[in-house]
Computed example of a mutant assay.
Amino acid sequence: MEIAAVVVSVVALGVSGAASLRQLRLTAHANAVPVLVDLFREHRSVQLAMARHVVYARLPSRDLSAGLDGLPGSERDLVRELAWFYDNLGALVAHGVVDIEPVSGYLGGSVISVWERVEPLVQAERAKRARNNLPDPNRWQEYFENLYYLVRETPPEQARAQTDMWRLPRP
């Protein structure tokens, strides 16, 4: 009789622990959903769409060696806003607030293409900050850079295909 009670207790403890873990995951997911919805909405905003246009259409012809100071004012503001958006998104992913899979699945292509176009500007800006003795100059856009590498590890196609709810065939 005592062995049966111990077995029942152990099974009950296991079931309770599994239910608690599932509840924690559901809570974390529920907290991340509004954050992701807001981020995706911001990415679709007119301002960030204009910023991406500047990055794709105008940045390649600009001298990026002066960092942000080398860009005309309106372009500088747009590029900075876009870079900060991805940097903030990278911070949320790096600290586990949101998972990389939905970010990569939805925004991964943009993360990769924007980073590859702005990287020379970021490197120039970091060098300028180092020359001006600003603290930790290499930290500027570090979360964006890290996000780029995370997306490369979990490319958009893979992130989408790994979800249980993806039905489209891979290209």
Rank of each mutant, 00 (worst) to 15 (best):
residue 41 R to L: 15
residue 47 Q to H: 11
residue 21 L to D: 01
residue 85 F to H: 08
residue 56 Y to W: 03
residue 52 R to V: 11
residue 54 V to Q: 05
residue 79 V to N: 03
residue 18 A to T: 04
residue 96 G to K: 01
residue 23 Q to A: 10
residue 67 G to F: 11
residue 43 H to D: 15
residue 19 A to C: 09
residue 76 R to Y: 01
residue 71 L to V: 13
residue 28 A to E: 12
residue 68 L to G: 03
residue 80 R to K: 15
residue 46 V to M: 14
residue 30 A to W: 13
residue 21 L to I: 05
residue 19 A to G: 10
residue 32 A to Y: 00
residue 61 S to V: 10
residue 36 L to T: 01
residue 90 G to Y: 02
residue 64 L to V: 12
residue 17 G to F: 08
residue 93 V to D: 12
residue 86 Y to P: 02
residue 72 P to T: 02
residue 40 F to M: 06
residue 56 Y to C: 03
residue 54 V to P: 00
residue 28 A to C: 06
residue 66 A to E: 04
residue 39 L to W: 13
residue 18 A to V: 08
residue 32 A to G: 01
residue 44 R to H: 11
residue 25 R to F: 10
residue 47 Q to T: 13
residue 47 Q to P: 00
residue 96 G to D: 03
residue 97 V to L: 12
residue 65 S to N: 06
residue 52 R to W: 12
residue 64 L to T: 12
residue 25 R to G: 03
residue 46 V to Y: 15
residue 96 G to C: 00
residue 54 V to L: 05
residue 98 V to D: 09
residue 63 D to P: 00
residue 75 E to L: 05
residue 16 S to Y: 03
residue 43 H to C: 08
residue 27 T to C: 07
residue 37 V to A: 11
residue 92 L to M: 11
residue 68 L to M: 15
residue 45 S to T: 08
residue 61 S to T: 13
residue 89 L to T: 14
residue 18 A to M: 10
residue 27 T to L: 12
residue 88 N to P: 00
residue 21 L to P: 02
residue 94 A to N: 06
residue 94 A to V: 00
residue 75 E to M: 12
residue 79 V to D: 03
residue 58 R to N: 10
residue 62 R to M: 09
residue 20 S to W: 14
residue 60 P to D: 08
residue 74 S to E: 15
residue 25 R to H: 12
residue 42 E to Y: 03
